[in-house]
Design a protein around this nucleic acid. Structure first.
Lengths: 287, 287
DNA sequence: TAGGCGAACTTGTACAAACAAGCGAGCATC
DNA sequence: GATGCTCGCTTGTTTGTACAAGTTCGCCTA
């Protein structure tokens, strides 16, 4: 239970975030088991000494994370967590290397930055640049990233010592100099670019599908050509909506999965049909 | 622009939803191009004749969808939409077979129900039951779905006449009778179960990765054994958090992709490491 | 001209109040 | 015993206000 005096001096963090963290910890620790009801908004408001609106903001966070369900008229319930791998060890809230409650703010970084995700999960990881060169932007790239001379980088990343990810990234012209200044074995490009020029990867658009490994993929990942890979294509922009990079990431099958929890009310993930006819549509890399 | 008198009698729909729909249509139609700034909350409040809080709820919806970006102190901006396939045709808001503004409420259904997703996208689709039988629940299944005699169903679904999806679903004991009562060529199981017993699939947890096609997969989908498939494993629950089904869906590579837009603030999608060592962990079906 | 400063603007957080809408349990009725 | 209904509880929506915090841009100064 979060006590009021713990807030004094907390300062920068919003109260609804603190309340959300407190409730989330209760859920993840098992103190509030799946199927149990949360206290009513009125009771929580009284308990934490805040207005009902503040409590609503807090539980809205949890609902967006898929941890609790809401229906008008009925108490909120804790939803079951059934993802394989998270079931067996009902870890008592003290995850290795991560402060409890950081899950939400990590979730974008996790999806975007391999390093930040791996670090948060307590994994041993590495990576290095295989190839890097400037070239003129194609038509579609110019539309996505803006014109000029883009920077194309091929990276191989490892998890627990094994190669799991081939990253083919195209950076917009305006970030190219900063990326070129990075060392070849830079662990976290995202972090390095933030430190160097204050660049924040704020928004992303992702397309997830499966492809067969090409010869280069196969060689780098140590799998047979044609074996299945999980592909994540993404385009990232800054706060202002300025495009930063466009990437084609390919994971070895069985090494990494994407997980999402959604509710009938709101979720950003959707299926998308691909054009079955034009298999020769534009590829970012024809390796 | 939405006019006030259009609301009179609208009744059930919340005003913030109507405002969100109006703004979304402006963005998707191109009237508010990517990079442009939205009017300030105060101005929108005046224009729509509502309080600022209501406007904030509306734009929060758009922000959750990844359509607009927010930073404290700066105007909201329209984010670029760069997913391949949605770029070329900047469809003037009149998508085939879908009312404008329905995107958000569809997004869960789209992710869950193949039929509803395909219908919303204007695709020709079909499907049939290949195999169906009752059996006792395994240990992990009992933990996910509750014990008793579960119902296992194998379905093959087609898109534009071609087989694209093998669906292996396990239904909890309490829904098994209703599922068995459905015809083998039932188009939308979700819809049929709602009509029959008022069942709503409200929450889902999904795990997305890539696998090689097994011999049964290959035969049904008309691909070679070992070719890449996009796999979506999901567990769905009702409003109350009661588990309904657990499914293993495999899409032919190149037929369907998952898309997601996220922001640094909030998103439920995250990577998850898989155990590289134990390849013999539990499988729902060992086909 | 370059840099610093500040004022106006904009979004974020929090509170208080009121009503609408849906749920659930208990009660009364048949 | 089963059915239907009412009432209290709970969440959803909306308004209004106030202040905090960050951004933007123009002005002023060095």
């Amino acid at each position: 239970m979060l006590l009021f005096h713990e807030w004094e001096g907390a300062g920068v963090v919003a109260r609804y975030e603190l309340i959300a963290d407190d409730l989330r910890e209760g859920i993840l620790s098992g103190a509030r088991p799946a199927g149990s009801q949360l206290p009513s908004e009125a009771e929580l408001a009284g308990r934490y000494g805040v207005a009902r609106g503040t409590v609503r903001q807090a539980v809205a966070v949890l609902a967006a994370e898929g941890l609790v369900g809401s229906r008008q008229g009925a108490r909120r319930v804790v939803l079951p967590s059934t993802v394989p791998g998270t079931m067996p060890d009902a870890a008592p809230s003290a995850a290795p290397g991560g402060t409890p409650g950081a899950a939400r703010s990590q979730s974008f970084a996790e999806l975007h930055s391999f390093a930040q995700w791996a670090r948060a999960g307590g994994h041993r990881f590495g990576g290095r640049v295989i190839e890097q060169r400037r070239r003129r932007a194609g038509a579609a790239e110019a539309a996505r990233l803006g014109g000029g001379e883009v920077l194309e980088v091929l990276r191989l990343r490892t998890l627990e010592g094994e190669p799991v990810l081939v990253e083919r990234t195209v950076y917009a012209a305006w970030v190219a100099p900063a990326v070129e200044a990075l060392p070849a074995d830079c662990e976290s490009v995202t972090q390095a670019l933030y430190d160097a020029i204050g660049l924040v990867f704020a928004y992303g658009e992702h397309l997830i599908d499966a492809v067969a490994a090409g010869s280069q993929d196969a060689r780098l990942l140590g799998v047979r050509r044609g074996s299945p890979l999980l592909r994540q294509r993404r385009t990232t922009t800054t706060h202002e909506g300025r495009p930063v990079e466009s990437s084609d990431d390919r994971y070895r099958a069985g090494s990494v999965a994407f997980s999402i929890r959604n509710s009938i009310g709101a979720n950003p993930l959707a299926r998308q049909a691909l054009d079955l006819r034009s298999g020769r549509g534009e590829h970012m890399f024809d390796s």
